[in-house]
């Protein structure tokens, strides 16, 4: 009898443990942050609100809209435009100086796709964090328009978006007329191990808008780690490397393929979902 109960107990514990192990698979939606787009319907909030940006791209948007006066502080990684480097610094995602934030007392924190835990940190300080998402170029436009509403610069925001749209359209058409479009692009964030971009990354959309095609666009992750042999089998026309990857590390896998290495500035442009996004499209369409 005792043995039986012991066995049942063991099985129960096993099941419980299994639940623990597989729970993350079921609970993947739990940590999603609220969309910035929820402000779309709201009235113009006016230009007397103040902000702290913890994302380089959001800082760029603020500057592009000419609303930098309302920006009290930025993160350590906000390096563009140059004027942003002069702003007060409050650390980065993993090491926010909460005391500084509290002293500055901004109305909003502008964040880009950060964890719920970090957002809660600001909520405890009684400061509203706004978390923006950027799955594709259209959502980046929406972000720009939303920031325009928040800062009272709606007109400027619309101009920025329209300008970007025109530029992208032009680049795409030019590439098509010159017969450069339709290339199979492999974008590598890192060579060892090979990290690339998947379906969820906005860079996939950038490549698509440029008239080319990202060979890894079907992979269901932001930054999937892929097998080198899979990369070879994909037979890309162009391999694009981030600025900190050496061409030699990849050359041996693609002996007859064009390999392009981005420089630090291009890398920032491609990886920041901000107002310079059209330059990223121009880069890919010019391949």
């Amino acid at each position: 009898m005792c043995r039986l109960w012991g066995k049942i107990f063991k099985i129960l514990v096993f099941l419980l443990f299994g639940l623990f192990v597989f729970a993350p698979a079921f609970a993947k939606c739990a940590g999603e942050c609220p969309l910035g787009a929820s402000f779309e319907g709201t009235e113009s909030i006016g230009n007397h609100k103040t902000f702290v940006s913890i994302s380089p791209a959001m800082t760029e948007i603020i500057y592009a809209l000419g609303a930098e006066d309302s920006l009290l502080a930025v993160s350590n990684y906000c390096t563009y435009p140059n004027a942003a480097k002069e702003k007060e610094k409050i650390g980065s995602n993993y090491s926010i100086n909460e005391e500084k934030v509290l002293k500055l007392r901004p109305d909003y924190i502008l964040a880009l796709d950060v964890s719920e835990a970090l957002l809660n940190k600001f909520r405890r300080l009684k400061i509203t964090p706004l978390c923006f998402k950027y799955p594709d170029i259209q959502s980046i436009y929406n972000n720009i328009l939303t920031v325009g509403k928040l800062t009272g610069k709606e007109k400027k925001a619309k101009e920025v978006v329209d300008f970007s749209k025109q530029k992208i359209d032009f680049a795409k058409k030019k590439a098509q007329s010159e017969g450069r479009a339709g290339k199979r692009v492999l974008y590598l964030v890192q060579a060892r191990p090979m990290i690339t971009i998947g379906k969820k990354s906005f860079i996939t959309d950038i490549i698509k808008q440029s008239g080319n095609y990202s060979v890894t666009e079907s992979l269901a992750a932001y930054y999937p780690v892929i097998l080198e042999e899979y990369a070879i089998k994909l037979k890309p026309d162009v391999v694009v490397l981030s600025h900190f990857t050496e061409i030699d590390e990849v050359k041996k896998f693609f002996p007859n393929t064009k390999i392009v290495k981005t420089d630090a500035e291009q890398n920032d442009i491609i990886n920041r979902p901000g107002p310079r996004i059209y330059k990223g499209v121009e880069f890919f369409s010019g391949l």
Partner: peptide, 23 residues
Amino acid sequence: ILLNPDKAYSMTLILTGGFSSAD
């Protein structure tokens, strides 16, 4: 790793080990 969040992903990945590493 905490000081360099932009490289945290690749650092964590490399620290778990793998064969693509060694040249």
